[in-house]
Design a protein around this nucleic acid. Structure first.
Lengths: 252, 252
DNA sequence: TGAGTCAAGTTGTACAGCCAACTTATTCCA
DNA sequence: TGGAATAAGTTGGCTGTACAACTTGACTCA
């Protein structure tokens, strides 16, 4: 029985998916890029066809392969899909690019939540929240201003961290705070006074805004953030197919 | 046996997913928002647990429910996820908002593809392509400038359309051109001469750019488009979870 | 009272099998 | 030669079963 690479932990279909991704990235399936049949793969890896199908569903959702009744799968691209955490955490994202992430904490305050903030964080009116303002850098260059709101429980943990800590997500993970789902909204805004001062851009300069809302496994909001990027430093890509749609457009 | 609503065509798990989405939207699962167990749902709808799980996987990918070993699923939100086609087609998107989509074709040209264009459309060097420049409006107001490239086969179909046709996607679908996968890249650019003239904005005004690349079921590129939106008219939202990641950030 | 233990309930993972729907290449026939 | 029928191969969809991993609430006991 062949052993699926890409690590030896976790579910079989995940290991298999990692293995197939690796094989695709190294061009193991040739120029035309047709994958072996599910049956073949099942035999090769010594698993059932169902497990193979689960693995291939992952690759399909990532936009790596097509999937179509009647004919074998075709490789769409070797596009390396980022892990969930590279999307959640600025620090991990930067490191995955081989750049040095930096963080300067401008301020942390504890105050009552406003109505909109209560709604976004699923809190009772008047609950206390923490608000953290940070300047993020990529290889010393200011890239983004991050304004993050935490419910009291999480914020208290953040407050105790080293003020020079680059990542907040990682220490939270060590405390057992699990980020499971995020919703991202992307639009364009104009720099306010803080943005202008911290990023060194012109007043009212256009910025790419990404608002992130993260919840734990039970669906409880953990964080709501407003991140503003200097134009030209970032682009967002989304893959979606008839099968799975994750992106949507909204009126701004 | 209960009949799943939300249409009577297509696979059972899709009908079931539509039915559950409807039930969630109307608040059928109460304030705490816990779904019945998979076993219960299977009995209620007269299907197997595997089919229920397929349906719930769809809702999960759409960010409607959580999913976690050991406890029942929890409703995250009633957020109506747009269909694949509302994302693919400006016309359908506008109609789903209840607004009137408009289109003014500025020009159609046939010319040899440049190297980058060949790569994006998977064509041999020097192949002919069609380029369509359109101004899109929402309830008569200019919203977006659309520059779309088609390979020759598709472009020839477009060329034959009524120049006042609002949708190009729908007629193509009738010709059997099936859009199956799209990749979207979102960033910020500054208006060029065409943008300025058509949108009536200032020279070098900031615009939200969405580049869309669509392929058919076999993975053959069908279209590559550069769409530039007036700020404030649009926002993009993405949901992703540990299980399925579709979005990624890139250096701009 | 409080902590630990236990049992029931629930989702995750994996296996096996069956048929339908579809694609592709081959074969056959006019 | 060209087109239609056919067969083989492949993925989609659905069912059933079994066990593992985990959550939750109730219960027990010190």
């Amino acid at each position: 029985m062949a052993v699926a690479g890409g690590g030896t932990t976790g579910a079989r279909y995940r290991r298999l998916a990692a293995d197939l991704r690796e094989a695709i990235a190294t061009g193991a399936y040739g120029a035309d890029g047709r994958l072996p049949s599910e049956e073949k793969l099942a035999q090769q890896y010594g698993v059932s066809r169902g497990t193979v199908r689960q693995a291939l569903a992952v690759l399909r959702a990532n936009g790596l392969v097509t999937s179509r009744r009647g004919t074998r799968r075709v490789v769409l691209g070797t596009a390396r899909t980022q892990s969930f955490f590279e999307l959640l955490s600025f620090t991990r994202w930067a490191r995955s690019l081989g750049e040095e992430p930096g963080s300067r904490t401008i301020g942390i305050e504890r105050r009552p939540a406003e109505p909109l903030e209560c709604e976004q964080l699923g809190l009772a009116p008047g609950s206390q929240i923490y608000r953290v303002l940070r300047l993020r850098t990529l290889s010393r260059v200011p890239i983004m201003v991050e304004r993050t709101l935490y419910p009291e429980r999480i914020g208290a943990l953040i407050k105790r961290l080293d003020p020079h800590a680059i990542s907040h997500t990682d220490p939270l993970a060590e405390e057992g705070v699990v980020f499971a789902d995020t919703e991202h909204t992307i639009d364009l805004v104009y720099a306010d006074a803080d943005d202008t001062r911290l990023l060194g851009c012109a007043p009212d300069a256009p910025l790419m805004r990404e608002r992130r809302r993260a919840t734990d496994q039970a669906g409880r909001p953990l964080m709501w953030s407003d991140d503003r990027f200097v134009p030209g430093t970032i682009a967002f890509t989304v893959h979606n197919s008839v099968a799975t749609t994750a992106l949507s457009r909204r009126r701004g």
